[in-house]
Write a protein that binds this DNA or RNA. Structure first.
Lengths: 217, 217
DNA sequence: AGTCGACTTGGCCATGTGACCAAGTCGCTT
DNA sequence: AAGCGACTTGGTCACATGGCCAAGTCGACT
């Protein structure tokens, strides 16, 4: 029989799996603060409040930590509160709102973007981790597609091109702006460029005819 | 009097400044081949065919090499043979040609893009090198502006928005596509997305009226 | 020819890193 | 209560790295 759960903050023995999660979280914190290079096994354990030996009890190697890190929710850009979309507003306006909502996530946590970039670069060089960036990008794009779909429905817009192709361009535009911004750190320019893209993307949409005035049959 | 120049490939003593250039070139080669992490001072010297001690005779520190590397022509994307532009063709078509010509540079030397990304990430974390990415981006954008200007003149197009804003979007689009492509490595998708952007950018142009048929006065 | 400074070389050092291990500790089960 | 297996811990190892140096070598100018 399993006894009553012991207070997790007090008990000495911690399940190896939860400890793994703690280490991953700690690693992400260190990387955001000081960069991926500073995230040594020791620094990560210190951040997690564990002795150094704990690391290789949880992970076979450091690569395994990288893999775990890449496999978790790194791409947080698209996970934001859904913006206020008004079906009666101009398409441009709604698109601008959408892009800006995603941009706000970037500006709120710029270090996350940097870490993501560092992590992807690392993985692209490591044969063991080489597949992960492709998988991550696919996941990210899928999420973008579903978000765009949802948006189009809510704004009552019809996309004149394939949704995936549309999302692909949106992702590229957002990614490009982020990339530039990480270097120049000029938020004004970034948002202006993003607004410019909103205008361009609007040319790929058409308002859905309102059926309430023209019921079928 | 300066004696006749000794054969540079034979003579033992090499000017420290040219040796610096040799090391920078060797470093870039190593980085492209094995990644920035593998470019240790030793590996670089070996690549350059020099003993390890030569490094710190030429550079005060490794950071100084990074700085030199970032300060040289890293952004080669826009330096390609000028594409064939036809003033009588559709704007979309010409824009597609332009973007594709830049893309070809990327696909020809993908490692260069990776190294650039790694280098920028490194610099963004290092207080000593922190200014370089912003400078690099400014330089890159300036070059893009001039290229766009040249292009518009040659294709006899008028841009309906500020040239710099236009270039900013082009740079972001190209950068975003590169970023995605580095992960998924699907050239077809990349070019299709780029072609999509060409269509969008075309909406920001208007043909310049041909004055030959309507001479002034 | 002689001198002086620029260049060359190999070796050395302190440091930090990922990895490993063996002894110890805890708590669930029987 | 006794045992057993999962978890804990600090120490240690081999190794690579950036940086430094002192002795040696070359070559240009006087």
């Amino acid at each position: 029989m399993v006894s009553a759960p012991v207070d997790k903050t007090t008990k000495k023995h911690i399940d190896a799996d939860t400890r793994r999660r703690m280490l991953v979280a700690a690693a992400l914190r260190v990387m955001k603060r000081e960069g991926i290079a500073a995230a040594t096994t020791r620094a990560i354990c210190a951040e997690a409040g564990m002795p150094h030996g704990a690391f290789h009890y949880c992970f076979r190697s450091k690569q395994e930590l990288y893999a775990a890190l890449l496999a978790t929710d790194i791409n947080i850009t698209l996970d934001v509160e859904w913006p206020a979309v008004d079906p009666r507003a101009e398409p441009v306006e709604n698109l601008r709102t959408l892009l800006r909502s995603w941009w706000s996530a970037v500006e709120t946590d710029p270090e996350a973007q940097l870490v993501l970039s560092e992590l992807v670069n690392l993985a692209l060089r490591d044969p063991e981790l080489g597949e992960l960036p492709a998988w991550g990008h696919r996941t990210y794009l899928d999420k973008a597609v579903s978000r765009v779909d949802h948006f189009a429905a809510e704004a009552r817009l019809h996309l004149t091109i394939d949704t995936r192709a549309f999302a692909e361009m949106v992702v590229a535009a957002l990614g490009g702006v982020i990339d530039s911004w990480l270097s120049h750190r000029d938020a004004t320019t970034a948002v202006e460029t993003l607004d410019g893209f909103a205008g361009l993307f609007a040319t790929l949409t058409r308002p859905v005819p309102d059926d309430r005035d023209h019921p079928p049959g």
